Simulated scan of single mutants.
Amino acid sequence: MNETTRPTPFREAFYRRERRSIPLVRQFVRAALLDWACGVPVDDVLLCVTELATNALVHGVPPGRGFKIELTCGETLRIEVHDSGGGQVRRDAEPVPGAEGGRGLLLVAALADAWGVGERDPGKTVWCEFAVSASKFVGSGPRAHSLP
Rank of each mutant, 00 (worst) to 15 (best):
R26L: 13
G74D: 10
G85E: 09
T5H: 04
F28V: 04
R26Q: 13
R30M: 04
V89D: 07
G118T: 08
P97S: 08
Y15M: 05
V81G: 10
I69D: 00
G116W: 04
A37D: 14
R11Y: 02
R19V: 14
F130Q: 04
V42L: 15
G118Y: 02
D35L: 08
H59L: 06
L24Y: 05
L106S: 11
F130E: 01
C38P: 06
R16C: 02
A131H: 03
G86Y: 02
N55Q: 13
V61H: 11
E75P: 07
A112S: 12
E51A: 06
Q27D: 15
R17I: 06
F137G: 08
T125V: 15
S146W: 11
R91F: 11
G39Q: 10
R120C: 04
E75D: 14
R120K: 13
L34V: 10
H145D: 06
G86F: 01
A56M: 07
D83Y: 11
G66A: 07
W127C: 12
G86H: 01
Q88P: 00
S140A: 08
K68A: 11
A112I: 06
D83G: 09
G86I: 02
V81H: 07
K124D: 08
D44I: 00
A31R: 15
G60D: 03
G139N: 03
V96Q: 14
A114K: 06
D43G: 03
S146Y: 11
S133I: 01
E94I: 14
A93M: 09
P97H: 02
T5G: 01
E80Y: 01
S21Q: 06
E51I: 05
A110L: 11
L106H: 13
K68Y: 04
I22Q: 02
T72E: 14
T76P: 00
E70S: 09
R90T: 02
G64I: 08
S133W: 00
S21W: 03
R143Q: 14
R91Y: 06
G118H: 07
L77M: 12
G39H: 09
P23K: 11
Q27F: 10
A99F: 08
P122V: 15
D83M: 12
A114E: 13
E75V: 08
V132W: 02
L111Y: 14
G74Y: 06
P63R: 06
I69A: 00
R143K: 12
W127K: 09
Q88L: 10
V25H: 00
L77A: 10
A131E: 05
H82I: 08
G64D: 10
A131Q: 03
E18Y: 09
V25E: 01
Y15R: 07
P63D: 13
V25M: 03
R19N: 10
P122T: 13
P142D: 03
G139W: 00
L34K: 03
V138K: 10
V117R: 08
F130P: 03
R20V: 09
L52F: 13
F67E: 03
E94T: 14
